[in-house]
């Protein structure tokens, strides 16, 4: 069972990232669930979603309270979810907007200036895809190919190529061990 939490602010594509991961898990024959935070949300407000991937066993709670892996795309999400990550788990931090480095030493932390890198690629909105590409490379929870194959289910066709590129960028950064403290 892999419990994943993806958090940031409304407009960063947080929900789509979670759905993409869910579709990829489904394509690999896993049990999957996706659950959005659905408070009185608005663009710019806090947004997060839970994804659970399981091999064989049924999924219990669809809401993740202690993630095995998390992506935090801004400072409030880092503050809120860094302490929640399970010991030995994984945390990908968007250091462009996180305000501070992550402090945990009992988990694997990868800090990526995802928003800046996405800007260099021509669209700041693919920042989350860079982070997701890095997370699946770190954890191996699904293959990058499954994510790529699932992109058309969550994005318009014309956006797919740039997002494929962003996923690959994240994978490369994770492989290179990335600048552990990119800031």
């Amino acid at each position: 069972m892999q419990e994943v939490l993806i958090a940031g602010f409304g407009g960063q594509g947080i929900m789509s990232l979670g759905q993409l991961l869910t579709y990829a898990g489904m394509a690999e024959g896993k049990q999957v669930s996706w659950m959005p935070s659905y408070g009185p949300e608005q663009r710019g407000g806090a947004a997060n979603c839970s994804v659970v991937l399981a091999d064989g066993e049924d999924i219990g709670s669809p809401i993740v309270s202690e993630p095995d892996a998390a992506i935090v795309m801004n400072a409030p999400s880092l503050d809120k979810f860094e302490p929640a990550v399970r010991q030995g788990g994984f945390l990908v931090v968007n250091s462009s907007l996180s305000g501070r480095p992550a402090g945990r030493s009992d988990i694997t932390v990868l800090e990526i200036p995802a928003t800046e890198l996405a800007g260099e690629m021509g669209n700041a909105r693919v920042a989350g895809m860079i982070a997701l590409g890095a997370l699946v490379e770190l954890t191996g929870m699904v293959s990058l190919q499954s994510l790529v194959d699932s992109l058309p289910k969550v994005l318009k066709a014309q956006l797919v190529p740039l997002n494929v590129e962003a996923l690959g960028r994240g994978q490369t950064l994770a492989r290179e061990g990335a600048p552990a403290r990119a800031r």
Partner: peptide, 10 residues
């Protein structure tokens, strides 16, 4: 409940 309504599953 709201969770069941909002969540996605196959």
């Amino acid at each position: 409940d709201g969770i069941l309504g909002q969540m996605m599953e196959p």
